[in-house]
Design a binder for these strands. Structure first.
Lengths: 347, 347
DNA sequence: TTGAAAGCGGTACCAG
DNA sequence: CTGGTACCGCTTTCAA
């Protein structure tokens, strides 16, 4: 049926142990013997049995990457950067490591499920990307799960997510609070005082932090934080569109809108256009993340550029043990304010 | 150290076999016994050993999804649809199946590597998405690899990719030729005669098919196919931007540009704007795929909407054996022409 | 309905 | 440098 390592050994006239050594390449084997084995492998079209290998070695070459929304380039960029660092030689058996990206869809349960699945697969490392749920129960379950993973020898890296103390997980956190603050400060600096804010989904770290930054900016400028000016919305275009309508209904006098990310900001822009408002002449708009297409979609969009690729790559290297974790296991990654034509003040 | 099924058995005072049966749920077990086992599992925080399980059962719960570019929503949308069909109960041991998306970056070698890795993991199914390389050597290697996979019992589904005859792979192909043709016909119908065409990367099925459609439309209307009007470009915004410059240099008299996909079209729009040209007043632009944000980026963009989500979901169901493959193992999925303001004729 | 035991296909330690 | 050989942890007949 399926050809096994023993078959290869037989054909190459060596012991299974030797074949294993050749395949793993981490043990001295005579060149001639290696040749013979490799030829046998080729002749038989042999493919190593991953599960058997992982079972015996008590570790696998899988690296999990958890993302909240695989259709969102924010995560795609990070995942692709992580993955490019994962690849290459150095893995066991046959070389390549396998980066697998798991789409949680933002669901805490799925997140835990995937972690269990990865734990089950004895993953070599796990990278969790993007904001985390702040539900108390879930947070506690996550802490336990992450601790178990690190205790079992799985390297855990949080990328764009706040630290998870006492779990052994390394964190590359994004400075969402600072970014949010600078974004709103920019708008305030232009003279805006009635600023609508489209926050992300409730109970998410990114949502809270960016909102806190926004409020800190308002407070610092002595501007009232009118509750009517803040609405919550999932991180997608459609929701951004819808909530913008709500915002305009509540506060027709607003002169600027800050959105929790670029995708939402795009929806906001679309809604404004559909209502006949001009950007930034009538309403200035600010986003977050600076995804590649946002400049096309909204040339006047001011936003915060997070170094997604760099952060992902670093997370990947740390997950692979190619780079030392930051001191204390925690580093903060800052974004750059991209000012682009929201230069208009309030109308 | 790590708790095993035997530990659970001991604690529950049953045999390992019984624990296994409870966990897999596909065998009659007395309710009381089940209870006891489940409690033990919980007490011990037991997590099934995936590799061991896969080894013994000679199959795993992994489902691979191969994508050319994980940062491109085109693939993200398909992947997320596939994955939502994969999930849910029905899998072995513990329920959930694990969908893993593998980013080939469009590289044929990586594609083969990932397939080998999935083969190694004894994946339950594999879904390959998007255009394929047309390099003869690679195509042959792929055929062999796919055949091996299906022979080993792995279900293989091609989604948005042409059929691979005699491999046992099911194909849901996109009608790229027809879409490309209708797009160009639309521009011709508006009176355009000098139409620049930004084709995709060379040696890709999508590139060739869409280009063939474009040429078929030109031929049908008796319009000369000037080679200077066609340039090749990778499927990304930057390349679309750059090649548009090249196109305008070569043919300053063009009145419309058809791009191989929306991302490229976005780059084209940006380039046109930067050169002071208006869309569609000066130059009409057409794209392909109709990604969610493209309407924001270029409200005047005419494009072809492929049912990415539906196709992905169907591919997922077929991969899971939840839906019958189409007759002959091949189905063609058609796109819908989205006409949006490229209504201007040539200037 | 439950238990006993024979593998599944490699790995790595121990000899030689 | 190479071979022999206990496991790795679970699944699955076969009996009871």
């Amino acid at each position: 049926m399926t050809v096994t390592l023993a078959d290869v050994a037989a054909r190459a006239q060596v012991s299974p142990a030797t074949v294993s050594r050749v395949l793993n390449g981490n043990y001295p084997v005579a060149a001639a013997t290696r040749e013979r084995v490799l030829r046998a492998v080729d002749d038989l079209d042999y493919v190593l049995n991953g599960p058997a290998s992982a079972l015996a070695a008590a570790t696998s070459d899988l690296v999990g990457i958890l993302v909240n929304d695989i259709a969102d380039p924010f995560f795609g960029i990070i995942a692709s950067a992580v993955q490019s660092e994962i690849g290459g030689p150095g893995g066991r058996a046959g070389g390549e490591r396998m980066a697998v990206v798991c789409n949680t869809g933002g669901s805490p349960e799925r997140e835990l499920t995937y972690l269990t699945l990865l734990q089950r697969q004895r993953a070599a490392a796990v990278v969790l990307t993007g904001g985390a749920s702040e539900d108390a129960g879930h947070a506690e379950a996550m802490t336990r799960k992450l601790r178990r993973l690190t205790e079992a020898g799985t390297r855990v890296v949080l990328c764009g997510r706040p630290p998870s103390p006492d779990t052994g997980a390394v964190a590359l956190a994004f400075d969402n609070r600072g970014g949010g603050r600078r974004l709103t400060e920019h708008l305030l600096g232009l003279g805006h005082r009635r600023i609508g804010y489209i926050a992300g989904p409730r109970e998410r770290t990114t949502t809270r932090h960016r909102l806190e930054g926004h409020r800190a900016a308002l407070a610092a400028h002595g501007v009232e934080d009118d509750p009517a000016l803040t609405v919550h919305s999932p991180y997608d275009r459609r929701s951004g569109y819808d909530t913008t309508g709500e915002l305009l209904r509540r506060a027709p006098d607003l002169t600027a809108i800050a959105a929790s990310n670029d995708t939402v900001a795009l929806g906001a822009c679309a809604a404004l256009r559909d209502k006949g408002l001009r950007i930034p002449a009538d309403v200035s708009v600010a986003g977050f993340d600076d995804l590649p297409f946002s400049i096309d979609a909204a040339p006047a969009l001011t936003t915060v550029r997070l170094p997604l690729h760099e952060a992902g790559a670093r997370a990947g290297r740390i997950a692979m043990g190619k780079e030392e974790p930051p001191p204390g296991g925690v580093a903060t990654v800052h974004g750059e304010l991209m000012v682009r034509g929201s230069t208009g003040g309030p109308r």
